[in-house]
Simulated assay, not measured.
Amino acid sequence: MTSCQKIRPGATAYAGKQGFDYVEGISRESMGSRAICMMLLTIPPGGRAHAHKHATHETAIYVLSGVTMMAWGDRLENVMEIAAGEMLYIPADMPHLPWNPGPEPAVAVIARTDPHEQESVVLLPDLESLVA
């Protein structure tokens, strides 16, 4: 039987396949979640992820502070800016590559329909050079 649980972010961090360090929050490993994970991400100024997608899992992001950019699409042909106070939805299997162009760190809450979080990450090295 599961019960309600709380966690204070910051206790545990891990290096994601995408190239960023995440603060573990809610996941199968930390809480026994069966269908969702939620974590904190701080992207330092100049930080850039590897091109990737999350196989069969959707992602929702709320930017708490800072500004990020994200290239997305089959060939990363689209680019958008996401700033503090904005939310972003990334469909399952959507190639994307986020980065922080700004002078300040960008902090976001990320939720995904993958309770293991890193299990669905698929790196797309052939797309890396498409984003300068």
Rank of each mutant, 00 (worst) to 15 (best):
M1V: 14
T2Q: 12
S3Y: 05
C4A: 13
C4E: 08
Q5S: 10
I7V: 15
G10P: 04
A11V: 02
A11W: 00
T12L: 10
A13W: 04
A13N: 04
Y14K: 06
Y14I: 07
A15E: 15
G16C: 14
Q18H: 05
Q18F: 05
Q18S: 13
G19F: 09
G19L: 07
V23A: 07
G25S: 02
S27R: 12
S27N: 03
R34H: 06
A35Q: 14
I36F: 13
M38H: 06
M38K: 01
M38G: 14
P44D: 13
G47A: 15
G47T: 11
A49K: 02
A49Y: 01
A49Q: 07
H50N: 07
K53G: 04
H54Q: 13
H54Y: 06
H54C: 09
T56F: 07
H57C: 12
H57L: 03
A60T: 09
I61K: 11
I61H: 09
Y62V: 07
G66H: 03
G66K: 04
T68L: 08
M69R: 15
M70I: 13
M70D: 05
W72L: 11
W72C: 05
G73Y: 12
G73R: 09
G73N: 08
R75V: 07
R75H: 14
R75A: 12
L76I: 12
L76M: 12
N78P: 03
V79H: 11
M80Q: 13
E81V: 08
E81M: 08
A83C: 01
G85N: 01
E86K: 06
M87G: 15
Y89P: 03
D93G: 14
D93Y: 08
D93A: 13
M94L: 15
M94Q: 15
H96Q: 14
H96W: 14
P98F: 15
P98H: 13
W99Q: 01
N100C: 02
P101Q: 01
P101H: 02
G102H: 05
G102S: 15
P103T: 13
P105R: 06
A106T: 10
A106Y: 07
A108S: 15
V109M: 12
V109S: 04
A111R: 02
R112Y: 00
R112G: 03
H116V: 05
E119S: 14
S120Y: 03
V122N: 00
L123Y: 03
L124M: 13
L124K: 07
L124C: 05
L127K: 09
S129V: 02
L130S: 01
V131Y: 06
